[in-house]
Amino acid sequence: MADVIVVGGGIIGLTAALRLRERGADVTVWTPAGPEQTVSAVAAAVWYPTRTGYDPRLLDWARATYDQFYRHAFERVPGVLIRETRNLERDGSTGEPWWAPAARGVRYLPIDRPWTREVRFRAPLVEMTAYLPWLRQQFVAAGGRVVRRRIDRLEEALVEAPTVVNATGLAAGALCGDPDVIPARGQIVRVANPGIIVSVRDQDEPSTYIHPRSRDVVLGGTWQENSWNTTPDPATRDAILQRCIALVPELAGAPIVGEEAGLRPVRRGGPRVEAEKWPGGTVVHAYGHGGAGMTLCWGCADEVAALAL
């Protein structure tokens, strides 16, 4: 019998599982699919608290996660890069963004209209198709277990462990009766990288982002709440390409190498990370991170481990 069962094998579940194992717990991860089939694998996975408001707890998580990925980059962990980033703002803000204390060397530059300010900083970027398998391997090498299993009720896990971490993303809405959990559809286009090394993010609606990875560039995006459609839309693809090329003309003519649509696990009111007593034991909820799962994962994992043990 495990000490803890983590239900969910995306970035939130795997980071929590590894932190729990590092603290000496006997941990099993239950996941219905491999890491390459999670929504985490579709994500652009760049450090930035997308559509997340200020909360001191989230700032702590963002800082811890930023620092952890910087260490990973220094250690040459597969898939982890650091990119200079340009945020092009349109709302006339003059103060420091709430997330800035978690990042390194944030600078503020003037810019021509229609933008009102350029915010520059260095941000971790993670190629999830390389990083998630590495993370899972680290967990298993540390003595953790991964079991392919789909569940219909969290009580199924409580039968086999006194503590369960609910890192089920969108499925948490049904599993624990949370009506605030909704999908936010995101569509991306991947093109061959013509030599771009700087990320760009435009604050306009819909937001536009350009994130260069080692071999391709992730272009986006969309934010369509309550849409469950995971089929890429050609018109949306064309609009993304048009907006991105307008921002970075070097992208013109870059061949498309892939396109995906995924569902961000949004929770109205923000992420739910708390321990709850159930008849069969303790459930530590860790879901609802929306588009900021990668940005908050390691700090969130530290809190999950503290709550669970």
Rank of each mutant, 00 (worst) to 15 (best):
V257R: 12
D91F: 05
S227C: 13
G105C: 07
A102E: 08
F69L: 15
V164Q: 03
E260R: 11
R63V: 01
R63E: 03
T116I: 12
D55M: 01
L18I: 06
T50F: 11
F69V: 06
I5E: 04
I256G: 00
A157N: 05
T236S: 09
G269N: 10
A286V: 05
T94K: 11
E89S: 10
T28D: 08
A306L: 13
R150Y: 03
D202W: 02
R136P: 00
D202C: 01
W99V: 02
E36I: 01
G195E: 14
E22R: 14
E96C: 04
S214N: 11
G53W: 01
I196M: 15
V159Y: 02
A43H: 06
D67H: 02
G9K: 08
P255I: 05
I82D: 10
Q187C: 05
V304H: 09
A174W: 08
A157C: 06
E118Q: 15
C297H: 08
A184E: 12
G195Q: 10
E155R: 14
V4G: 01
T15K: 01
V46R: 14
G299F: 03
D3W: 07
C176D: 15
R153A: 15
L309N: 08
E260Y: 07
E276H: 10
Q203T: 06
A239P: 01
R213V: 02
T50I: 13
R71Q: 13
R201E: 08
G262L: 00
S40R: 13
E36G: 12
L251C: 09
A123Y: 05
A261V: 14
A43F: 03
T94L: 12
A25Y: 03
V257Q: 12
P232M: 06
V147I: 14
R21E: 02
Q224P: 00
A171F: 07
R185T: 02
E84H: 15
P97L: 06
V42S: 06
G24W: 13
G293M: 11
R185F: 00
P194K: 13
G79L: 06
R136W: 01
E75R: 15
P271E: 11
R86L: 12
V218D: 04
L309H: 11
P212L: 09
N229F: 00
A141F: 01
H72I: 03
A130E: 14
D233L: 08
Y209R: 03
E155L: 07
D180N: 15
L241H: 00
A286T: 10
A2N: 12
G269V: 04
P183N: 14
R185I: 02
F74Y: 07
N229A: 04
A254V: 04
V146R: 13
V218Q: 04
V266K: 02
A45M: 12
I111T: 15
